[in-house]
Design a protein around this nucleic acid. Structure first.
Lengths: 153, 153
DNA sequence: TTAGTAATGTTATAGTATAACATTACGTAT
DNA sequence: ATACGTAATGTTATACTATAACATTACTAA
């Protein structure tokens, strides 16, 4: 689904984006938060909370669930990662969001996930909500299937 | 969000729909499956597996997790209920599905859920998937916000 | 009737997440 | 620099969600 590439670049970009956001939002990218964000980007696929936990503990970080869940909460609140609801897993966000929304293509073959940033989807969903008198505050779209790479094999 | 009404009618309809589907699919609406479906419709809001479990056990049904999870799996597979991923909860389906998709408006105030059956959403999502060479097999859309009823108060 | 499959029973455990309270670190006003 | 308030983390315990694995029972069709 994604081009093969060195992750180091996306990790770097993600971290510097995170730092900028923390300045803007007046909050702190503490070592734990930074480490969790880094691990999520390193994985490059959805990663589970307890897998993060295991990796943290193997690197001399504190390895208790609340630690990682707090970091995840922080990163989600600041739009630096998203939760893939259908997998109880977390993935980095490299998209600029004007609204609270996340939209994914999830390949059930290779488990790669691509985040969509198509305004058209938001527009359609927003129109339909409005038609029902519903005021949306947060949208989540998860499309499972087979990615182009996997479809060819 | 929904008009006030007697649930008895929707429960009846849901059950007879279920019976028809089981005939079509050559499977059985056993007492447990029927009871679980009934409880889900009685709730009329998303209901959790362990809440179903509690209600079952108070009615002389077997009250072990696998029982209820198996019934839930059966009902989901036959499109009689859906799982609300963002809530780990289950809700009845009164919609006819041509494809595997579920789309919800979820009111965070009153916790009512309305299932959408707008082909336009599927069309939009399908077009965008295709553009990426992605072959969708299952779509889930969860829109959180405030329903028209709650917005007025 | 009996053999094969579907469904359920049962025990145990895996996997996901949070509550509650204690402690430490940080930012800032004095 | 110091003291104070807030933010973040440490720590223990437990709640909540779901499934594996194997035994038993019920149904169906030859």
């Amino acid at each position: 689904m994604w081009q093969r590439h060195q992750h180091s670049q996306c990790i770097k970009e993600a971290l510097s984006k995170a730092e900028q956001i923390c300045i803007d939002h007046q909050c702190r990218l503490t070592p734990i938060r930074k480490k969790v964000l880094e691990l999520i980007w390193k994985s490059h696929k959805p990663i589970k909370a307890y897998d993060l936990l295991a990796q943290l503990s193997s690197e001399d970080f504190i390895e208790k669930p609340p630690t990682v869940y707090r970091a995840l909460e922080f990163l989600i609140d600041n739009n630096l990662i998203h939760r893939i609801e259908s997998q109880n897993a977390y993935i980095g966000c490299n998209t600029d969001h004007e609204t609270l929304d996340s939209k994914f293509l999830i390949c059930d073959q290779c488990n790669e996930v691509e985040e969509l940033s198509e305004p058209k989807i938001n527009k359609t969903l927003s129109e339909i909500s409005k038609k029902q008198g519903f005021i949306p505050s947060l949208v989540n779209v998860e499309i499972h299937g087979t990615c182009s790479q996997c479809a060819q094999h």
